[in-house]
């Protein structure tokens, strides 16, 4: 009997989508992989709603309330949640704003920034409220596995999916443990 495909969901919170790019950078290895997995909600599919999944890959840390809501949805729906990349693991480059107050950051960007025209801090009610600090995702939910790197190498994505398929813990060998 043909084995059911693993359902994989992905999202980018306070990230740059670089991790998603790296995931796709596995070249021809993605062809046999597609026989084993199917994507649920993901920027790669543009599916907007999340159903129950085997693996949730979270890129990016938490910088606003929408990030928090999505992360909790993923935790509820995904059997295995993976923190993907430096930003999910320690906040990454966006967390460098943690040195400053949120107000200082907003003023620097929207009031005093170079070339700003009609300076004002955006306040549209549809914009998600920013958090005071950018946080790693494990500060809010339990994380099962971590893929370090900025971005993690494509081989590290492949290893984590193969490990889940084979029912074993992932083993990131030396070239695949990268923090940059």
């Amino acid at each position: 009997m043909k084995q059911a495909k693993l359902k994989v969901a992905t999202c980018s919170l306070a990230g740059c989508f670089g991790c998603h790019m790296s995931f796709l950078d596995m070249d021809e290895a993605i062809i046999p992989l597609i026989e084993k997995i199917e994507f649920d909600r993901s920027p790669l599919t543009d599916i907007k709603s999340l159903s129950d999944c085997d693996i949730g890959l979270i890129e990016g840390g938490l910088c606003n309330e929408e990030n928090q809501e999505i992360l909790h949805q993923f935790r509820r729906h995904c059997t295995i949640l993976v923190a993907v990349g430096a930003c999910a693991i320690n906040g990454g480059v966006p967390a460098m704003r943690n040195h400053f107050s949120l107000q200082e950051c907003l003023e620097e960007s929207y009031i005093r920034g170079l070339g700003v025209v009609d300076p004002q801090i955006p306040n549209d009610p549809e914009l998600p409220r920013l958090l005071d600090k950018v946080l790693p995702i494990q500060s809010a939910v339990m994380v099962d596995y971590f893929l370090p790197g900025c971005p993690p190498p494509a081989a590290a994505f492949l290893e984590i999916i193969n490990a889940v398929l084979e029912g074993r813990p992932p083993q990131l060998d030396y070239p695949n443990r990268r923090f940059d």
């Binding site: 480059v93 967390a95 460098m96 943690n98 900025c150 923090f179």
Partner: peptide
Amino acid sequence: GNHYCPTC
């Protein structure tokens, strides 16, 4: 500390 390896 504050260790952001990608920028270091």
